[in-house]
């Protein structure tokens, strides 16, 4: 689908301009497309994150759907409450959404998220993943990748990124997907698909962050594209337990000439300035193996 075609059905804006997001924010770009796919009959719960700030100052808001700001660890539980409250009143046509950052998802909110998934709560959880606590000024999170500088990992994080999408898939929920703010159409279509499924749905979106990742604000979309084209970030879906690569990621597997060395992704960001050539080679090897594995998994069940 082309941008021009998608404009015909998705011209309505639900994230209004003039908000307090940083210039070139990947998160607002992603939220814009999520809401275009969901429409106005949507209620959002937003646990502590950039999202609580970028909607603007009282008494105005940039969001034109109900938007409930919530304590850090409480997003999925509050969403469960809203789902239950609407359910008991017979209000069936409203989509309940939790819009949370990676810290709120992988760290402080993981218990609540896991509980809601285990209960197969009828809502869509979006993790917008900028790979650190950006709202508080770039501290490491469980979702920060190895090698990335943050203010609490001045020499680069040593540990690996927690794979939340796989963790959520292991809950055997009906729908899990990954996306990236640089692929609005992919995100739009996955969100539309998720909207039609009942039960717990989880979409994990990589959103580049100019101040936190240390790149120029105009490069937000480019950096996200490099993440996918290098295979550093995979786009896929897990539908009823079956793993499917999404077209942008399948493309780099089918046409290796479209693959970008991970070095390009790493070198484009200041946060990876501590990584040396040897480490980049190691990372490249890991990605090669990951892609090989992903190609084999395509169309196969993810777990037993």
């Amino acid at each position: 689908m082309s941008a021009r075609k998608i404009f015909q059905e998705a011209s309505e804006e639900y994230v209004l301009p003039g908000n307090s997001a940083c210039q070139g924010c990947g998160s607002t770009l992603a939220l814009r497309w999520v809401l275009k796919a969901l429409g106005n009959k949507t209620v959002i719960v937003n646990p502590a994150s950039c999202g609580c700030v970028y909607v603007g100052l009282y008494p105005r808001t940039a969001l034109s759907v109900p938007y409930i700001q919530m304590a850090f660890a409480a997003g999925p539980a509050a969403a469960s409450g809203i789902v239950g409250g609407l359910d008991v009143q017979g209000k069936k046509d409203i989509t309940v959404v939790c819009w949370a950052g990676d810290g709120g998802t992988a760290d402080i909110g993981v218990s609540s998220l896991s509980g809601s998934a285990e209960r197969n709560t009828n809502y869509i959880y979006f993790c917008y993943d900028n790979e650190a606590y950006m709202n508080t000024g770039t501290q490491r999170s469980g979702s920060t990748p190895a090698g990335a500088w943050t203010t609490t990992t001045p020499l680069g994080k040593k540990e690996s990124k927690k794979d939340m999408a796989f963790i959520m898939a292991a809950h055997r929920i009906p729908y899990v997907a990954t996306s990236c703010s640089s692929y609005p159409i992919d995100l739009y279509e996955k969100t539309k698909k998720a909207k039609l499924i009942g039960g717990m749905r989880y979409i994990h979106i990589l959103v580049p962050c100019p101040p936190g990742w240390r790149f120029d604000t105009g490069l937000t979309v480019k950096i996200g594209r490099l993440a996918v084209e290098s295979g550093m970030w995979l786009l896929y879906e897990v539908k009823n337990g079956i793993f499917y690569l999404s077209p942008p990621s399948r493309r780099i597997l089918e046409s290796p000439e479209k693959r970008v060395p991970v070095k390009e992704y790493i070198k484009a960001q200041g946060r990876f300035r501590g990584i040396d050539e040897r480490e980049i080679d190691l990372l490249q090897e890991m990605i090669d193996k990951k892609l090989e594995k992903a190609a084999k998994l395509d169309g196969e069940p993810l777990f037993f």
Partner: peptide
């Protein structure tokens, strides 16, 4: 509670 408007900031 806050109401939607352009230029919330």
């Amino acid at each position: 509670v806050s109401t939607p408007s352009k230029g919330s900031i």
